[in-house]
């Protein structure tokens, strides 16, 4: 067992290292900005005095590595500095929005993960039947659609008739049921996009194994097709399925940007797009760091879980 823990510790260390390098990249990217950041923000007409004052305010007169350390130490403690656009602390801007984004992602995940695993298993079980072909063609189309297309079609069909609101305005006072109702369309959009992907991968992971001799063995032992799939194929397909689920969860958290914009949902993605438009660098950096951290964390979890799902690694010789 100790070999497993060493492996997990190694992965964790590697994850932390990756995150560190990413933070350097995100911070360093603004250093690549052509010209002077202060001048860039204030515009060409600014007087040298205002520029100098602004530089001091941003700490631009300090050397880059000092600024990086300050930024990173602050970020670790939840202090991301202040927004250039409205001078408010970034932490305040992010706090409720992060919650909203996570809520939407979890909402979509709660529907899509069970749904896609079930559809994937069924498609593998009834492979090459009409059900499988239809599910596949639909999934393929759904993957191919841009998210805003799916979103606007849903608005056109469901919001037009007044069934659901086309704008998902929520605030901390909105009740839980009301929030679920208002965010149904964005959650459905996300669900449609990720379910297709996860279903296809689940199906492929299982079908990949169906040619293995041990599956043939199970069939020759007289096992039912359902048992062959669930008891013999699925446990061996766990690693790729876990990976694809994690990938899609990560996608749900980071890929909500477009959906949040379409439905005017107050999440992190919308904040990021707004800040990009305003060239509000500290906010963009902070949000990018949070997204990257979530992404790394999920991939790390998937990595560890799929290692744990492999009996060859857990039960050594």
């Amino acid at each position: 067992m100790s070999a497993i823990w060493t492996m997990i510790a190694k992965r964790l260390g590697l994850g932390l290292l990756t995150l560190f390098v990413i933070s350097v990249l995100i911070f360093g990217a603004t250093e690549l900005l052509p010209g002077d950041l202060a001048k860039n923000i204030l515009g060409q007409s600014a007087t040298p005095e205002t520029v100098a004052a602004f530089r001091r305010e941003l700490g631009l007169d300090l050397p880059a590595h000092t600024r990086y350390l300050n930024w990173l130490l602050g970020a670790v403690q939840g202090d991301f500095g202040t927004s250039l656009a409205n001078k408010r602390p970034i932490a305040d801007l992010i706090a409720t929005r992060l919650g909203n984004t996570l809520f939407l992602a979890l909402y979509a995940a709660a529907i899509s993960i069970p749904l896609s695993l079930m559809l994937g298993v069924l498609a593998a079980l009834y492979r090459n039947t009409i059900f499988d072909r239809t599910a596949n063609a639909l999934a393929l189309s759904s993957i191919s659609f841009p998210e805003f297309f799916v979103a606007y079609i849903l608005i056109f069909i469901l919001a037009q008739s007044g069934l659901f609101p086309s704008m998902s305005r929520v605030d901390p006072d909105t009740g839980f049921a009301e929030t679920l109702y208002r965010t149904f369309l964005p959650a459905l959009t996300l669900t449609l996009v990720v379910t297709a992907h996860m279903m296809r991968m689940t199906r492929a992971a299982i079908i990949n194994l169906l040619a293995s001799p041990y599956i043939e063995m199970a069939r020759l032992k007289g096992m039912t097709p359902m048992r062959v799939i669930l008891h013999h194929a699925l446990p061996n397909a766990l690693a790729p399925i876990i990976t694809v689920v994690a990938l899609n969860l990560a996608y749900l958290i980071t890929g909500v940007v477009v959906v949040e914009v379409v439905f005017v949902y107050p999440g992190l993605g919308q904040l990021m797009v707004d800040s990009v438009a305003k060239r509000d660098f500290p906010v963009v950096q902070a949000v990018a760091l949070i997204f990257a951290a979530a992404y790394v964390l999920l991939n790390l979890t998937a990595d560890v879980l799929s290692t744990l799902s492999n009996p060859r690694l857990i039960h050594r010789k």
Binding site: S212, P213, Y214, E216, M217, A218, R219, L220, K221, G222, M223, H232, P235, N236, P311, R312
Partner: peptide
Amino acid sequence: ALRGKRIAYVAQSAAASFNPA
């Protein structure tokens, strides 16, 4: 209902024909 019960099979590669899980 016959397979495994009244007619059984032994495959060439046991390593590949046992389910690793």
